[in-house]
């Protein structure tokens, strides 16, 4: 084996080792990288409560999977370390409604949805501002859009006594409909008695 061939082979071996190390690192970074929805949610979600915050039972309204296709919502109780502040508490509860559905059949809101902001005025009027995914990723239809809105409204009814009515915005703007059917121009009056 002449000298030039030896040098070439050693060079190739070094290149292979470097490529393998780089590839491993790149893969690890890719698998750790959050999805755009996760990244957006991390930016806007409610600040974490202190570890000492007591766990509070929270009632979340998802689709009843045993009645799939029938449009019924059913409450599921989970425990969350909730903040005292009602606006922060609402953000925590609605974020859980989006991401913590026990199964895809329970889901009423798209997983990629982000709650951008939540405001509560002293008269009980609340404004929930969602990302554009509410309009683009919610299945279009009267039934599916009504279930999306009802799950938000009933979850707030059950957990935020201060909220009397709700306005839903998408990317900070009032929209005529959610995904082509359900009217979003008005206020949604919460029927406190309706929440079991």
């Amino acid at each position: 084996m002449n000298r030039a061939l030896k040098i070439t082979l050693v060079g190739l071996a070094v290149l292979l080792v470097v490529a393998a190390i780089s590839w491993r690192g790149l893969r690890q970074r890719l698998t750790r990288a959050p999805s755009p929805a996760q990244a957006q949610r991390a930016l806007v979600e409610a600040p974490a409560t202190s570890p000492a915050a007591p766990l509070v039972p929270v009632r979340l309204y998802w689709a009843a999977p045993e009645d799939e296709g029938r449009g019924r919502l059913a409450p599921v109780e989970i425990q969350l370390p909730l903040a005292e502040d009602p606006e922060q508490r609402a953000r925590q509860v609605l974020n859980a409604l989006i991401v913590d559905a026990p199964s895809p059949q329970h889901r009423t809101l798209p997983l990629e949805l982000t709650l951008l902001a939540f405001y509560l005025l002293p008269d009980g009027s609340a404004v929930a501002d969602f990302s554009h995914d509410l309009a683009t990723a919610t299945p279009s239809g009267i039934l599916s859009e009504q279930m999306a809105v009802d799950s938000i409204a009933r979850t707030l009814e059950a957990n935020l006594p201060a909220v009397r009515r709700l306005k839903i915005l998408i990317q900070g703007q009032e929209q005529e409909t959610l995904a082509g059917h359900l009217d979003l121009t008005g206020w949604i009056e919460l029927q406190r008695a309706a929440a079991p």
Partner: peptide, 20 residues
């Protein structure tokens, strides 16, 4: 309308939910 969800071949009728 034809929706994205619901059991195939079923139909639902809606009246307006009312005004605030």
């Amino acid at each position: 309308h034809t929706g994205s969800t619901g059991s195939f071949g079923t139909a639902r009728v809606y009246s307006f939910a009312g005004f605030a």
